[in-house]
Amino acid sequence: MRARIIPPALHKGDVIQVVAPAGRPSAVEPFRSGLAVLEQMGFVVRYPERLWPGSGFLADSDTARAEELNRAFADDRSAAIMTVRGGYGSLRILGGIDLDLVRAHPKIIVGFSDITVIHNHLLASLGLVGLHGPVLTSLAASTPDSVMRLYRCLTGSWRNAFALPGIEILRGGAKVEGILAGGNLTSLASLLGTPYDFSWQGLVVVLEDVNEPPYRLDRMLTQLAIAGKFNQAAAILLGDFSLADARLYDTGPVDQEWLWQRVLDLTAASGIPVWAGLPAGHGPENLTLPIGADVVVNSNRRSLFFC
């Protein structure tokens, strides 16, 4: 893993640029409400005068989405970048991201879900620390704790103990130190076999997903295990795995305990710590995590310490 690049923290009055590297807003109200939350935090928010023209599941063409992200990094008038939503499409633009430009103009980039591939690509390629947290269109529906956590992380207050009294310690052990990585399970699995795959060696990996039936979750977890990822990781932190609609699948909804046991089985050889119930993912409680930060996993104290 490369030496880390930690972007400058924000101050009130700083500009946040909104970009759409994946999908476009599906409705106007969550977009406007998200803008209002950022403005209430004291930031100035900029976004395209002509909102993203894409149709279907993409905000725009691959070239246009990559160029928009590059412009946001290059623009010294903006202090941070917030993605408008996840969805699909980030994988398609990774080759178009100008890494030299990002290295020269490091900024905080915020998002989760499909944005996972961007966070981990920039971490593996440059060592850039990013924020796995709400996207603009999920911000207004987030819990007050999630909004406050995002504000603190944007303004540089992520280097502290993060107590998790409700966490489930599926397998504990001694304190573990590593670099925080990961995010959406489907997005991480999509990197396997591509030039953008990265080693999990020494990483504390967050996994979360939404509306996936058990057989798909099992397929992705098994694929990662066969690829050797779980044998490389220092610890696994399982976030929110929102239930799939049982009406859509003959397998029924996800049984959390089944999921937890499957991860324990796949990590049995390494014996690494496995936690469940991390308040991160597609639900209203999506507490911002600094992807790329050094983290101490303390099972005895049920806390993460970022430094």
Rank of each mutant, 00 (worst) to 15 (best):
R2G: 06
R4E: 08
I5M: 12
I6W: 14
L10F: 02
H11V: 07
K12M: 08
K12T: 01
V18F: 07
P21N: 00
P21L: 02
P25R: 06
E29P: 01
F31G: 00
G34S: 05
E39F: 03
E39K: 08
F43Q: 10
F43W: 06
V45K: 01
R46M: 06
E49T: 12
R50T: 00
L51G: 12
P53A: 02
G56Y: 09
F57T: 12
A59P: 10
D60T: 13
T63Y: 09
A64L: 14
N70A: 07
R71Y: 01
R71C: 04
F73S: 03
D75H: 04
D76M: 01
D76I: 03
R77H: 10
S78E: 08
I81R: 07
M82L: 02
R85N: 07
Y88H: 09
S90N: 02
R92S: 05
R92P: 07
D98R: 12
D100W: 03
L101T: 01
L101Q: 13
R103E: 11
I108C: 11
I108L: 13
I109S: 09
S113R: 10
D114K: 14
I115L: 13
V117R: 12
N120W: 07
H121W: 07
L123C: 09
V129A: 01
H132R: 14
G133K: 11
L139R: 09
P144R: 07
M148F: 02
M148D: 09
R152H: 09
C153P: 13
R159H: 13
A163N: 13
L164Y: 15
P165K: 13
P165S: 10
I167D: 15
R171A: 09
A174K: 14
G183K: 08
G183Q: 12
N184T: 11
L188E: 12
S190D: 15
L191P: 04
T194E: 07
D197Y: 03
W200P: 03
Q201P: 05
G202F: 14
L203F: 15
L203M: 15
L203K: 11
V210A: 02
V210E: 05
N211W: 13
Q223T: 14
L224Y: 00
A235P: 08
D240M: 14
L243K: 15
A244E: 14
A244I: 00
Y249P: 03
D250N: 12
G252Y: 02
Q256M: 08
W258Y: 12
L259E: 04
V263W: 04
D265E: 11
L266E: 03
A269K: 14
S270E: 05
G271A: 07
G271T: 05
I272L: 11
P273D: 05
W275G: 02
A276L: 08
L278I: 11
L278Y: 00
P279C: 03
A280C: 10
A280D: 03
G281Y: 00
H282W: 06
P284Q: 01
P284C: 02
E285F: 12
N286A: 06
L289N: 04
V296T: 14
S299V: 00
S299Q: 06
N300V: 15
F305D: 15
C307L: 13
